[in-house]
């Protein structure tokens, strides 16, 4: 795994593919790991369920989290991440179709680092992904590795 992987949590297959396509068009080479729902995302991050035994010290550099998902909703996943030492500091960007005020409030309250509304226009979407990637994976200084800083 490359040092700066991106963890995409998205239930909609179309969106997954479009996101992967967008990333491809931005020519970013970072590894993209996909979880198809909230529970899978948590399992992955905490090395549980199907991902039991995964090295949880090797966490993704950025989490792109869909807001509206079946089972566990985006903000619930966020709340669980933030409550756990192992995933507490990982930057999380909420990716959603909604601009709903209440949703935004909830996400920021639960510790989202960013809230991005997915543009319908694919060109704009690619541009958004490019900016996200260059900012969060390039410009932005990542948090100290949390599992070592706080056992």
């Amino acid at each position: 795994m490359s040092p700066k992987s991106v963890f995409l949590v998205e239930d909609n297959q179309d969106d997954v593919e479009l996101t992967l396509l967008a990333f491809k068009k931005t020519a970013m080479l970072n590894e993209i790991i996909v979880a198809r729902d909230g529970q899978e995302a948590l399992d992955y991050l905490f090395g549980a369920g199907a991902y039991a035994g995964r090295d949880v010290n090797a966490q993704p550099a950025l989490i792109l989290l869909d807001y509206k998902m079946p089972k566990l909703n985006g903000d619930e996943v966020l709340a669980r991440l933030r409550a756990d030492e192992r995933a507490k500091l990982i930057p999380v960007v909420m990716l959603t179709s909604s601009r709903d005020e209440e949703d935004r409030r909830r996400c920021y309250t639960n510790g989202a680092n960013s809230f991005v509304c997915k543009p319908v226009d694919f060109t704009q979407f690619v541009e958004a992904m490019r900016q996200l990637g260059s900012y969060w994976l390039g410009l932005n200084e990542p948090p100290p590795v949390c599992s070592k800083a706080r056992p």
Partner: peptide, 20 residues
């Protein structure tokens, strides 16, 4: 609420894949 989420998602797919 439902409209904002659920109508946009397929739209985005149509738009996105057309563009691709």
């Amino acid at each position: 609420y439902s409209v904002s989420h659920d109508l946009r998602t397929p739209l985005r797919a149509i738009e996105g894949f057309s563009q691709v």
